[in-house]
């Protein structure tokens, strides 16, 4: 019985380390995403919407709704690791029409959207299963007027 107890403690400790490692991986990916808003990719820096969208994905899609205001340019940045082409994101209009998917552009890790008139959109995020089947995916949205 004592051995059993020792084994359970060992497993529990290992699992804590593993989870901590996963959280650290997510943090690294957040920094990659942040660099797309603040780095040298654009002439003007984008202002963050103040949120970080993180999901542990496998075969499922993560979907959320937001509003893009007219008169703004938005940047969507997504990453799931050091190789930036792991994440597919798709932007749809209120009727479900696809406005854009980075799948058609080699899973580009960021894309800009000029929005002359306000539009409620839904954004779907998934991993490119040919490249990565499970892991942490991070998305960040920024805007400029």
């Amino acid at each position: 019985m004592i051995d059993m107890k020792k084994i359970s403690i060992l497993f529990f400790t290992l699992s804590l380390f593993a989870f901590q490692s996963n959280a650290q991986d997510c943090e690294k990916i957040v920094k990659v995403c942040e660099s797309y808003l603040n780095g040298s990719m654009g002439k003007t820096k984008f202002v963050s919407d103040g949120q970080v969208y993180t999901a542990f994905l496998d075969r499922e899609k993560a979907e959320f709704k937001t509003t893009f205001y007219g008169g703004s340019t938005y940047r969507i940045a997504a990453s799931a690791g050091n190789d930036d082409e792991y994440v597919i994101f798709t932007v749809k209009d209120p009727n479900g029409n696809v406005l854009f998917t980075n799948k058609n552009y080699k899973n580009a890790p960021y894309w800009d959207f000029k929005v002359p008139k306000t539009i409620p959109v839904s954004i779907e995020t998934e991993l490119d299963l040919d490249k990565k089947v499970t892991g942490c995916a991070v998305m960040i949205i920024g805007f400029k007027q």
Binding site: S48, D49, Y53, F56, L57, F64, Y69
Partner: peptide, 11 residues
């Protein structure tokens, strides 16, 4: 997706 739902509020 076991991180729960994702929500977005414009700035």
């Amino acid at each position: 997706n076991f991180d729960g739902k994702i929500f977005s509020i414009p700035s």
